[in-house]
């Protein structure tokens, strides 16, 4: 399965740089400071997890990286080039699968190719990625017929069919039940290893961050700034009960202001 994908994949990966990024939203009568001078360099092929309290601005970082918004101050660049707008090389996967309900799974996965006019030459990729995320039997199902895990898999397939060089994941497993989440985490890791894209994962699940990422960045409350950075050197596959991971978990929770007893 992953062999077939590795052969078909010509994706590669990109470096992502945030330099002194600040961002605020102008609401009706006040401004909301979301990011405060965030600088972060992510290497090609790296798996980085952003950890922080909810509503702290993690998702905004992803939106900036995706090019959906431009930062108020500072710059975001890919491989040294400033990011000016959305590009299918950098794809965002949301917490909700946000599949288009009027399209079948196959048609949802096809959106990226359709939008770029590549549907004829690369249609075969749809079946490949559907197989990859184990949805090959569900191509003609509508989103409302899928379980939460299947919908999120379909959303992943919709991203992967474009061979992204950077995958931005906004709490992609946050709404799944815990068993499905464990399975999906492993699948995501396999995909990352075989396809080789750069991954930036926003999560509030400390274990998830430690299990998946090469590096965990801890953000402060809003306006978010980087308060800690942690390298995870344990080789994959990592075990949840690994002593070193448990120690890292304790120190991360402390950084986040939660005591050992939890």
């Amino acid at each position: 399965m992953s062999v077939a994908f590795a052969e078909a994949s010509v994706a590669g990966s990109i470096a992502l740089d945030f330099e002194g990024v600040s961002h605020r939203y102008d609401l009706d009568d006040k401004t909301l400071e979301v990011l405060d001078n965030v600088s972060l360099a992510i290497e090609p092929g790296e798996f980085v997890a952003l950890l922080g309290p909810s509503g702290c601005g993690k998702s905004t970082l992803l939106r900036l990286a995706a090019g959906l918004e431009a930062p108020t101050a500072g710059s975001v660049s890919e491989d040294g080039q400033p990011i000016l707008g959305p590009n299918p090389d950098r794809i965002l996967v949301f917490q909700d699968a946000t599949l288009f309900p009027w399209r079948t799974v196959r048609a949802n996965v096809a959106i990226g190719l359709e939008a770029r006019g590549l549907i004829c030459e690369r249609e075969y990729r749809i079946d490949e990625v559907l197989k990859l995320v184990k949805l090959d039997g569900f191509a003609d199902f509508y989103p409302h017929q899928l379980s939460g895990g299947m919908a999120q898999r379909a959303a992943l397939a919709r991203a992967l069919v474009n061979d992204p060089k950077l995958l931005l994941l906004d709490e992609p497993f946050g709404k799944l039940d815990s068993l499905t989440r464990l399975r999906m985490q492993k699948e995501l890791l396999d995909l990352w290893k075989s396809a080789g894209f750069t991954a930036l994962l926003v999560t509030h699940d400390v274990e998830e961050a430690l299990l998946l990422a090469d590096r965990v960045i801890v953000l402060s409350d809003r306006p978010a700034s980087i308060v800690a950075e942690l390298r995870v050197d344990q080789p994959h596959p990592r075990r949840r009960d690994d002593a070193k991971l448990i120690a890292l978990r304790a120190s991360l929770l402390e950084t986040l202001g939660i005591s050992h007893d939890v």
Binding site: P86, P88, L92, F94, A115, N162
Partner: peptide, 15 residues
Amino acid sequence: SFYDVARTLGADNRF
């Protein structure tokens, strides 16, 4: 978010 999804996937205004 439907628009956001479509835009990150490379959709133009027409799409």
